[in-house]
Amino acid sequence: MKNFNEKVFKAITHIAALFTIACLGGIIITIFHEGFPILKYAGLIEFFGVEWHPTHFPADFGITALIIGSVVVTIGALLIAIPFGVGSAIYISEIAGNRTKEIIKPIIELLAGIPSVVYGLFGMAFLAPFLIKVFGIPNGLNALSASIILGVMVIPIISSMSEDALSSVPKSLREASLALGATKWETIIKVVLPAAKTGVMGSIILGFGRAIGETMVVIMVAGGAAQIPTSLFQPVRPMTAAVASEMGETVIGSPHFHALYGISVVLFIITFITNFITEFVFLKRRNK
């Protein structure tokens, strides 16, 4: 009986693992299969052109503005999230006492549990009017507001993973540094942080993946104009927003339909590369 249970359990976990792989395989095949036909209609140069007018006749399927939109809001988000994320990680791991740590850590992790649509609503209903009033800019839904909201969303990822990395730095390293006469500040910056470098880098790359793949927030807050922005105060249309908001009414098999899948292919390649780098960074650490 026991032996039988053992075998059943093994089989179930086996199937679970295979199922995940099968799903991934299915997704890859589908998006590449549906994405490549766009090259029949547009050609590679036109597909990476500037103008995106998918429903106009004749249609333009240039996705460069969409890619730049994604990149701008993602970099903006990281510029906000890295100082706050890594800073809070250093505070929690190195400076805060046990009690403060136990309060702050779960609160930051709570941020990660808020659904993205709630972040989007916050951006639309509060942040955008606030930016108009305070900075007098003409338009509240723009690359900057999307960056701010995405940045806040990414903070808990960077913070909790960096904190894990910092905490796993052996205590002996800190003690040695302090014993040599280094101050606490010097110990953190010159000893602990370099020792946890790979973990912190990994958290940033994961944060990048989260920000570039986020959809709901950019649909609601980024403004949705398919242009190459000349300032942070201009609206942009990231790739995910274009796919999600246009897919609903495209005719299956039309050039527009294939173009949206083509965007998915580009997005998939970008996230695949970032995941690959994360994996590589972590593998390097494990082998040490």
């Binding site: 103008e51 995106w52 007018h53 106009h56 006749f57 503005a65 639309m124 209903a125 955008a128 009017p129 108009i132 003409p138 338009n139 509240g140 839904l141 649909i219 609601m220 403004g223 949705g224 104009a225 398919a226 242009q227 201009q234 609206p235 249309r237 908001s245």
Partner: peptide, 26 residues
Amino acid sequence: NSKLLTNCMMLASNNAVAGTVSYTPG
């Protein structure tokens, strides 16, 4: 049927348009 200008903001719902216009002067 003429081409929409490129920096036109495209919003996802009636509510989003109504809200944005209410607090955006131009």
